[in-house]
Design a protein around this nucleic acid. Structure first.
Length: 956
RNA sequence: GCCUUGGUGGCGGAAUGGUAUACGCGCUAGUCUUAGGAACUAGUUCCCGGAAGGGAUUGAGAGUUCGAGUCUCUCCCAAGGCACCA
């Protein structure tokens, strides 16, 4: 038999599959259950395919082939996200038209993908820069426009001076353009927006962007990232009255429970109250100078400023509606004008920013929240007397509050760890005994009962607060409550305890303050940080001793009753800015007429074609504006002189709906027909990089929701199941990058090892979603494996006398590989195939049926070699027309099982018995074992646990 | 700081609460070969021991359990996302 040479067989089968497109085509007509398996379509960059592309495309190829063999009508398309800045920048540099460059790149990508044996339905290929495609991008823009979801407004926008275009908030990272890494500045410009904020919450029948995340199967991190980006916060908005004036200042807060701690109010520099109260502000010049200065700063400079700055509006006092207290008013640029009301109530004791500011300007800091370490009955951190004694989960202190029958508990471990107990534990002494001893010395009580308490509750008290100060507090005293084993005695003991506490009150004052019968640790008398957690409210009038959450509820009710405020929900997400002043994108289909204003281009005139007579140099305005053929038009409404909108759309608009187009890529009447959308969508499996966790996925969801809301589609989440491939690092553990010269080119790997080896290797490297380093030596192992499979095809025999061992392993493999593909555990699927191959190789004869089934299992992973060997064992049809094998639970069973015998949890012997031996028999055999006898003889057997076919555990 | 995901041999990694280290790489020895390579065979978590055997071990500590990599709690570390959003 000749050697396994991938370079010979792979091109051969690729050609054959190309001649038989029905093997990978999605059939609109057939009435089988559908499965839509989608890759995030690539941007065809000049660098060509990356090993990361190979990883995700192999995964979807495996799933697609697997689903087809399981009788599904699979839609597995590929296309090109062809518009975008790199091609345009390349054009500026070299003078090559972006269209030409893009299509060269697409040709290269296509060649590379085909060389990997991917089973795409190429008849559905799409290209967002093709007028047949962007016609519908424009049509969707107009659909949104007509329904009030696309609008133009003047506003502060992110402007990248280097790219010479505006950017969406999502494309700015830390004030830096994510593309070119230059600083982004703020500019006032009139721009187009999509109303994505209409869909944050449910909108009529359409599930909102937040709630919809609850019904999709997506990675937790991506769901979290989206929620985080939307940034929903629930709070209240209410008014501070300005003293001696009709003016009011609305503030927004999520922590109304801290309102009695307000010591000043701050407005952002753009707040209109500054103008409104101009006459009353005694230092107006100073204020105006400050405002002017902050306006000059970029967002980046504002954020980078280490020290908070601000100016008091002298002569102005505002009144806290809860306490009636008068507090000063400040202007400071740490308050964001765009968020909430642009004004905040400042609570330095419980907000880090306010704290910092108050320290700097020497403003009062008033504490109104204490950490909650007194647990009420029913709470899981509350421990009531009479609970069982638990051996090592000691306590240090239990103090009862007789007023409401709650207990303060301090765990021994925690107390000791933090130096609360000074006595310490002697070497080798039991920690619980140490506690008893110390208590005894302190109090003279003997019948101490130790109770278990939640470390978590303690944690919030000691660790959290103390660590924030970057030092460990040390205590000199400890008070123990005594909970006697006799319930009756408790009252008496309690009295005694209180006596002790009161007696020690003087000494204790340093760290316990006594408030209303509740002992509150006064650790932070010298506050050097804000306490920002929820806790118990005090110094707050009628709200005293409520939990933060309860106080928030009651305070909001009061505000609403008084008519000074209301509950309010705020979001960080703003509307999506979609216009770009660049050439290589889909033109916005709007015409401006002096008479009629903005007029949508009539549908029959779509697409608005990108002109070719332009210079690409970015000049701060779209290059389209200088195309005579493009710019000057007549108004479609009145026939008068008019000009076209010269901006193009953000490329994310093009990629927000492409998954619809695949269902009906050649439709000239609609973006996709209703039947085809209904037939194929939503997408069952979507695979792509985690870098799209926020932008693309959020925008695509918005498009689907908008189309659902307008009645075009019957579902409101486009991607049911989403998986991200993990990043593949270079061999040195660093990111692959051109500048480091450590990029692996798939072409080179295919040439040296073959596409099948590359595919299997990328699947075998580790969990699909994990970051993993490349290792060229590792591919050798894959080649050896495939070589082995190739070699032992020689031992295949027509006879059908099954080998029990191989048959059992084969069925186990069918079971595991099937489950692993469903679960995206490709690495263990490959490993299981290797185990089967290793076993088959050791046999002198392999039966054809078993070998064939093995090849079918291998085929989605390594399609070329599977197809080749399949034909070599006498099949004339493609292996991909076979059905996926089913496993037989009976055959997968082991006849014999190796049973482990444990004594006190340690493995002492093993025995091989028949798999269905009953428990009594196993017990008897286990006890009879010599090695076991050595460990149990002379001892009493207390317990025996038997797990059938697995183990016997003997406890002595 | 917050959110998310992780931490297991020399390396990538595997393990429904039930033999930790499957599978692959690497390494060691051997077979074949003029030689190198390839291929094949055996071995390979660590410590003690010639062996039989024993002990330790899944970032650290504790808890639940006959039994914990896996469940609970605390701490430490790493990666990624968000971040002056009140």
């Amino acid at each position: 038999m000749e050697k396994y040479e991938p370079s010979k067989i792979e091109p051969k089968w690729q050609k054959c599959w190309e001649e038989h497109p029905e093997l990978s085509a999605a059939d609109d007509a057939v009435n089988k259950p559908k499965y839509y398996c989608l890759d995030m379509f690539p941007y065809p960059s000049g660098d060509g395919l990356h090993v990361g592309h190979v990883e995700s495309y192999t995964a979807t190829d495996i799933v697609s082939r697997f689903k087809r063999m399981n009788g599904k009508n699979v839609l597995h398309p590929q296309g090109w996200d062809a518009f975008g800045l790199p091609a345009e920048n390349y054009a500026i540099k070299t003078g090559t038209h972006p269209d030409l460059r893009t299509h060269q790149n697409i040709a290269n990508f296509t060649r590379q993908i085909k060389s990997l044996g991917m089973s795409y339905d190429w008849s559905r290929e799409i290209d967002t820069s093709n007028p047949e495609y962007y016609k519908w991008t424009q049509w969707l823009f107009l659909l949104f426009y007509k329904n009030g979801l696309a609008y133009k407004k003047m506003g502060k926008v992110n402007w990248c001076p280097s790219c010479q275009t505006v950017l969406a908030n999502e494309q700015v990272e830390d004030g830096i353009c994510e593309r070119c890494k230059n600083e982004v500045i703020q500019k006032d410009l009139e721009q187009w927006y999509f109303k994505i904020t209409d869909f944050i919450e449910n909108n009529k029948e359409t599930t909102g962007l937040i709630e919809g995340l609850g019904k999709v199967d997506w990675p937790g991190s991506t769901i979290a990232a989206q929620k985080n980006w939307i940034g929903k916060s629930e709070g209240v908005e209410f008014k501070f009255k300005v003293k001696n004036s009709d003016s009011e200042i609305s503030v927004y807060t999520t922590r109304i429970d801290t309102v009695f701690g307000v010591t000043y109010v701050v407005v952002g520099p753009e707040h209109r109250i500054i103008k409104g109260l101009k006459d009353k502000i005694s230092n107006i010049e100073e204020v105006e100078t400050y405002v002017a200065e902050t306006k000059k700063k970029t967002d980046l400079e504002r954020m980078e400023a280490k020290v908070k700055t601000g100016v008091e509006l002298r002569g102005i006092k505002v009144i806290n509606p809860f306490s009636g207290q008068e507090v000063p008013l400040f202007v400071a640029d740490y308050v964001l004008s765009q968020y909430g009301t642009g004004a905040v109530m400042a609570v330095p004791a419980h907000d880090e920013r306010d704290f910092e500011f108050a320290k700097k300007y020497d403003l009062p800091i008033k504490r109104v929240i204490e950490p909650k370490f007194i647990a009420g009955p029913g709470s899981d951190s509350a421990i009531m007397p009479g609970q069982e004694y638990i051996k090592r989960s000691a306590i240090a202190a239990v103090i009862r509050n007789p007023k409401d029958d709650t207990y303060l508990c301090i765990s021994w471990k925690t107390a000791h760890m933090h130096g609360i107990v000074t006595g310490g534990v002697d070497e080798g002494e039991d920690i619980v005994e140490a506690a008893r001893r110390e208590v005894l010395e302190e109090t003279g009580y003997k019948n101490l009962k130790l109770v278990k308490i939640s470390d978590k509750a303690i944690h919030s008290l000691f660790y959290h607060r103390v660590k924030k100060q970057n030092r460990w507090a040390r205590f000199q005293y400890v008070i123990f409550d005594l909970i006697d084993e006799q319930q009756e005695a408790i009252d008496e003991k309690e009295a005694a305890l209180h006596e002790i506490i009161w007696k020690k009150k003087e000494e204790l004052r340093d760290f316990f303050s006594v408030i209303e019968g509740t002992y509150i640790m006064n650790l932070l008398d010298n506050i050097d940080s804000a306490f920002t957690d929820d806790g118990v409210v005090y110094n707050s009038g009628e709200y005293d001793w409520m939990d933060s959450s309860e106080a928030r509820k009651k305070m909001a009710q009061w505000l609403e009753k008084e008519g000074i405020g209301k509950k309010k929900i705020n979001y960080k997400l703003r509307d999506w800015l979609v216009s770009r002043q660049r050439y290589w994108g889909a033109p916005i289909p709007i015409i401006y007429c002096d008479k009629c204003g903005a007029v949508p281009v009539p549908e029959k005139d779509l697409p608005v074609m990108l002109p070719t007579d332009v210079d690409f140099k970015p000049i701060g305005e779209s290059p389209l504006a200088y195309s005579k053929t493009f710019h000057d038009v007549v108004c479609p409404k009145c026939g008068g002189k008019a000009r076209r909108e010269s901006d193009t759309m953000d490329t994310f608009v093009c990629s927000s709906w492409y998954y619809f187009r695949y269902s009906d890529p050649k439709n000239r009447e609609e973006f996709a027909s209703k039947e085809n959308i209904k037939k194929w969508l939503p997408v069952d499996l979507y695979v792509g990089g985690a870098e799209h966790s926020v932008l693309h996925l959020l925008y695509a969801r918005f498009f689907t929701k908008a189309l659902h809301n307008l009645g075009y589609v019957g579902f409101d989440e486009p991607f049911l199941k989403l998986r991200h491939q993990g990043m593949i690092l270079a061999e040195d553990g660093r990111k692959m990058s051109k500048s480091l010269g450590n990029v692996i080119n798939p072409d080179v790997v295919v040439k040296e090892f073959g596409a099948d080896s590359l595919r299997i290797f990328e699947m075998f490297m580790g969990p699909f979603d994990a970051m993993k380093p490349w290792n060229t030596k590792g591919i050798v192992g894959m080649q050896r494996f495939l070589d082995k499979v190739w070699r032992f095809s020689e031992t295949v025999s027509d006879s059908n006398e099954p080998d029990v061992k191989i048959q059992s392993l084969l069925h186990k493999t069918i079971k595991k590989v099937t489950a692993d593909i469903e679960d995206f555990h490709f690495n263990t699927a490959v490993s299981q195939l290797m185990i089967l191959a290793n076993a088959m190789e050791k046999e002198t004869v392999i039966f054809k049926d078993e070998y064939g089934k093995f090849l079918i299992l291998l085929s989605p992973f390594a399609p070329h070699i599977a197809e080749e060997l399949w034909s070599r064992i006498g099949n004339d049809k493609s292996i991909f027309l076979e059905s996926w094998p089913e496993y037989d639970a009976e055959l997968a069973k082991d006849e014999e099982a190796e049973v482990v015998i444990q004594v006190n949890g340690k493995v002492r012997d093993k025995m091989t018995v028949s798999a269905d031996m009953d428990e009594e028999e196993m017990k008897a055999l286990a006890i009879a074992s010599e090695k076991v006898q050595a460990h149990i003889s002379g001892k009493e057997i207390r317990k025996i646990i038997v797990v059938k076919g697995r183990l016997v555990s003997i406890v002595v």
